[in-house]
Simulated scan of single mutants.
Amino acid sequence: MDVYHAGSRAVQDRVGVREDADHVGRAVGEGIKPVAAAFLELQPLLVLGAADPATGAVWASPLTGAPGFVRATGPRQMSVTGGVRPADPLATALATEGTRVATIALDPRTRRRMRLNGRLRPTPRGFAVTAERVFSNCPRYIQRREAYEVAADRSPGETRRGTELTDAQRAFVESVDTSFIATVHEGEVEVSHKGGNPGFLRAPSPHELTWRDYPGNAMFLTLGNIALDPRAGLLFVDWSTGTVLQLTGEAHTEFGEDGERRVRFTVREVVETPAAVPLRWSAPEYSPANPAPAD
């Protein structure tokens, strides 16, 4: 299986980590191992990335349920009970046979994350994904949250859409410690986690976000996609109130002479839904790997 395409290879070579990437890439497989299946069944949250089949816009969306709503139902199949809200930007994609999707299950309690990409098939109770790439990432930049509770009295508010960030949305973005980004290349999708101390993300204007790309696992799947196709989607979840902020637009990477990488994201559409996620998590213990946010 070819783990990397030309975009990822170009970034790896520019940074000088091709050998490291080759080593990490050997852990990518097509099957769901028993330890991965057990991990999935414990999760109340799954993040999914895909492109809207009508517009081509790339989005990331949260799915929630009681543990067991995500489970392995075969050596290469993950099944999900339920789906996204009807107003979610990916509602059409999740109802379309053959949609390419990427998923990430992130558990703040253990600071573990698992990624599974493949093709989607709608089912009577939700959907299934035939796995094509399955792998885990290190716990770096994941904030620990010891526990969560289900806010049984919480119901989603009215979804609000726009083409730019409001002042309140910009303040929210700059306060988060966790985000997710979906990217694409020739139909294939990746969704990854980006984390840091509050302030690691900046919203200098209603139309732009920026963040430093911290050193990671050397794979450069996200930046590799961006190098060849700028479409991207961002997801932010308020771990206390359940508010969800979704953005779609274009991203590009700036490489500094000192080796620092910075991503700039241009906002094209904004979707905000208050209380969309019925989970209330405990306060974070920030990852010791988090760098101090730059001014």
Rank of each mutant, 00 (worst) to 15 (best):
P75R: 09
M1L: 12
F220K: 04
N117H: 09
R125P: 02
D229T: 04
P291N: 09
P204R: 12
S179C: 13
S240W: 12
F200Q: 09
L48D: 00
G31T: 15
P44Q: 06
G224L: 10
R160F: 02
M219F: 08
D295N: 14
L63W: 01
S205C: 14
P230L: 03
T103W: 03
D2L: 12
R121E: 15
G187C: 09
E41V: 14
L63A: 01
A91H: 06
F265L: 09
G233C: 07
R26A: 12
D167Y: 07
T241P: 03
E30H: 06
A105I: 01
S136Y: 06
T210A: 14
E269M: 09
Q143D: 10
D52Q: 02
E174Q: 15
H193E: 12
E149V: 14
E174R: 14
T253V: 15
P44C: 06
Q12R: 03
P291Q: 13
E149H: 11
A36Y: 04
P86T: 06
E146P: 00
S61Y: 00
Y148N: 04
E164W: 06
A6V: 10
T103I: 06
A60H: 00
G249E: 00
D88Q: 05
P274W: 08
R121H: 12
D22W: 05
V173M: 13
H23K: 09
P293S: 13
R14D: 05
E174A: 12
F220G: 01
G195D: 07
G224V: 07
L116H: 02
E132F: 05
A27D: 05
V101A: 07
P53M: 10
T159L: 14
F69G: 04
